[in-house]
Computed example of a mutant assay.
Amino acid sequence: MLFPILCTPFVVLSEVFSLLESNEAVTASFCSKNFKRLLRNHYQRRTPLMWQACMVDYENSRQVSIANSGYEKKGIVSSTVHVSKINEALNEVVEINGYKTEFWSEFLIIYFEDQVLGSKWIVDYVTTLFNIDVRGLAIDRCSTWAIDWINKRQEKPLSHFGLLKPTNDVSNADESVDYVLKNARSSELLGIDEYVSDNYRFNGKLGPVKELCLWHGHWVTCDSLMNFDAIEIYIGRSRLAVSDLNSFLRHWRAGGSPRLHYLEVRFENKAVFENFDEDLEIVRTNEVGTYPVSYGELVVIRSCYSVQRLDGIRALVSCDHRRFYLIVQHEKTSN
């Protein structure tokens, strides 16, 4: 016997809808226009505040995920694939609202001829259904169009952004990274895992952001580091010299980079380190520095140096041939 769910009082339906996982809700919304309307009404009244929409447009992966507010748990709710990938022999593809669609066990796939149009469509569909904005964006160098598109379609900025390195090499890496650095805005995380040429330089300001991760940061100079406005900064494969770090510490002691709490630099080649410059008034200390980085680990540094800012704020510094750490202490020390 069929159950007349559309005739069920909305109060009862809302309780049922509240039990649905995000992927289940998206899949259910394709049952009928009336059922989709009921779901939209539910989420407009009870916006799932703990849900964040994340868009991925990376090579052959184009999808929308829903994550919790801490981005600790993510689940794909919809994906778009080129129509050439349809396997008609499986006979599992149906046409809904003019789009060829395939229901997987956990999410649905929609087939498009135009992949950019497909990415935009599934993002608009999911965010409209749940009455939420896109907060996370992960792209490759061929999908920088998504930055402007997201900025124009919503007032709320991204919280997490990532530029991912491609599996195949193409020639426009410098232009893509430069565009991202100048135009991508994210409040929590800005991560760039992309290669650029040895000649690439970035002279603008970056931030404000909580966490800045540059996995291939050989292009970062002392001047560009001073222009990074972040609480946590990680630079991998760095070519900064110890003399550059001395200059940065002078900048910090004078009040520069005031929001910085944590800096980690990993050198591409072995750095030649003996001692810091005397004018920095850095002294040895037996203190142990700790910092809980955003990705969940506790960084611990020993055999530290102590350096004090002009306003009394101290930082613990550690440097060897491979790494440089700076952990800012929040308590002021009287002179």
Rank of each mutant, 00 (worst) to 15 (best):
S22G: 06
S243P: 01
K152V: 13
I66P: 05
T80H: 02
S186I: 02
R37K: 15
N335T: 10
F35M: 15
F273P: 09
Y58V: 04
M1N: 13
A315I: 01
I109Y: 08
L13F: 10
S18V: 04
E331L: 11
L39I: 09
V116P: 02
A254E: 13
F273M: 04
V317G: 07
F35S: 07
V242G: 05
H82Q: 08
D198Y: 02
C142N: 15
V196K: 01
A53F: 08
S14K: 08
M226T: 09
P4Q: 04
L240D: 10
S334M: 10
Y305D: 09
D198V: 01
V26C: 06
E331P: 00
H42Q: 09
N131I: 00
L240I: 04
N91K: 14
L2K: 13
F267Y: 12
L20F: 12
F130G: 02
N91R: 10
E287A: 11
H251A: 06
L214C: 09
H42E: 08
Y58M: 00
R40W: 01
G162L: 08
C213K: 13
S29M: 05
A67S: 14
S334A: 12
E211D: 14
D311C: 03
K182Q: 14
E188D: 10
N23G: 03
N23W: 02
N151G: 07
Y43T: 06
N23K: 03
L189E: 12
I313L: 12
H160S: 06
V64P: 10
Y71Q: 06
S22F: 08
T128V: 03
K270Y: 11
V293R: 14
T144A: 00
D174F: 01
S159L: 04
R46K: 12
N199I: 05
E15L: 04
L206V: 15
V94H: 07
L189R: 11
I110Y: 01
I301G: 06
K205N: 14
D229P: 05
